[in-house]
Computed example of a mutant assay.
Amino acid sequence: MTEPDEVLDNLAQVSFAVMAHLSQVAAAHELSLTQLRVLGILRDRTPKMAELATHLGLDRSSVSGLVDRAVRRGLVLREASRDDGRSVRVSLTPAGVELARELTAEAARAMAPLTSGLSAADRNRLGVLLGRMLA
Score class of each variant (00 low, 15 high):
L75N: 09
G57N: 00
M19S: 07
A120V: 12
L129W: 04
G65C: 01
L103D: 12
Q24P: 00
T46Q: 15
G96S: 07
V38C: 09
A27Q: 15
L36D: 11
G74V: 09
R45Q: 14
S32D: 13
R89D: 11
L134W: 12
A105T: 13
L33Y: 13
H29E: 14
S61M: 04
A53Y: 08
L103I: 11
L52Q: 02
L92T: 04
D9W: 08
R86T: 15
A28I: 06
D9A: 12
D84E: 14
M49K: 06
M133E: 10
G85Q: 13
R82Q: 15
E102C: 09
G57M: 00
R60I: 11
L75H: 11
D44W: 03
A95R: 09
L130N: 02
E102S: 08
A120N: 06
V128N: 10
E3C: 04
D83R: 12
R45Y: 02
L77N: 15
A112M: 05
T115S: 11
A17H: 02
V18R: 05
G131L: 04
T2V: 07
G85A: 14
R82E: 15
A135V: 00
A80L: 09
G65T: 08
P113T: 00
L99I: 00
V128F: 06
G127A: 01
R109K: 10
R69F: 07
L134Q: 12
A95H: 10
L114G: 02
S15M: 05
H55I: 01
L42M: 02
V14Q: 05
P113G: 02
T54M: 04
A110I: 00
L58Y: 09
E3G: 06
T34M: 05
L39D: 11
V18M: 04
L126F: 09
R45I: 03
V88C: 00
R82V: 14
V90Q: 01
M111N: 04
R86V: 11
E106R: 10
R89A: 03
V14M: 06
R78E: 15
D5F: 15
A112K: 06
E106L: 10
E6R: 13
T34I: 14
T2D: 15
G96P: 06
L8S: 14
A100Y: 08
A107M: 00
A70M: 15
I41L: 12
R109F: 03
R89M: 01
S23R: 11
A17E: 14
L118W: 07
G127H: 01
R101L: 08
L22A: 15
T54L: 04
T46I: 02
D9Q: 11
L42A: 07
L39Q: 11
A105G: 10
T46H: 10
G85L: 05
S61T: 08
A12D: 11
E79C: 13
D122H: 13
A50T: 13
D84W: 02
E79S: 15
P4F: 03
G65F: 03
R89E: 13
S119Q: 08
G74R: 03
A121I: 02
M111R: 04
L130A: 10
E30Q: 15
D59Q: 14
E79L: 13
P94L: 07
G74N: 09
R82C: 08
A108Q: 07
R123Y: 05
R60E: 13
L11K: 06
L103E: 11
H21P: 02
L134C: 08
Q24W: 06
L31F: 12
A112D: 12
G65P: 01
V25T: 09
Q13R: 04
V7H: 01
D68Q: 12
A53M: 08
L31P: 11
A120Q: 12
